[in-house]
């Protein structure tokens, strides 16, 4: 019990805001990664952390408008991307090359995003404290 009372050596004096980046590279329903990432985004925001979401490769398919999942018996979680703003998650970045490779343009996406080159994404990545890959 005494161990629990001892201050953690690394405990910050005030609330520490870290820069979190969630890198999404998987399509939405074939695996659970996309949904898990969304949950982590919401949790991170709940703890008032600075979170940005990146969509690359098949991850851009998560943001495609008009998803209808009744037929596959899986919850359509894409509307949740529209709710992110309400949790102060407003940094959504999409890789230009990945969109082009899939024949997608910004108006195909269900939320406003910032389209960046891979190089620009690389620069953003290097500025993060924590990067989680999904």
């Amino acid at each position: 019990m005494t161990e629990l009372q001892a201050p953690l050596p690394s405990a910050p004096s005030g609330p520490k805001v870290k820069k979190f980046m969630l890198v999404n590279r998987k399509a939405p329903y074939g695996t659970i990664y996309a949904l898990e990432s969304l949950e982590v985004a919401l949790i991170t925001a709940t703890f008032d952390q600075d979170v940005s979401l990146v969509f690359m490769d098949d991850g851009v398919y998560q943001l495609v408008k008009g998803q209808q999942t009744q037929g596959i018996g899986i919850k359509n979680f894409s509307p949740a991307f529209r709710a992110l703003e309400g949790y102060d998650v407003e940094k959504l970045y999409v890789d230009e090359t990945s969109m082009a490779q899939r024949g997608l343009v910004e108006k195909d996406l269900l939320v406003p995003v910032e389209v960046l080159s891979s190089a620009q994404l690389g620069e953003l990545m290097a500025q993060q404290d924590v990067i989680l890959s999904f």
Binding site: R25, M56, D57, T97, S118, A119, L121, G122, M125, A126
Partner: peptide
């Protein structure tokens, strides 16, 4: 997988 390819176009000089 295309992971290496995507990483290489993302990584910046000095990484």
């Amino acid at each position: 997988t295309r992971t290496l390819e995507t990483c290489l176009r993302t990584a910046q000089p000095g990484h």
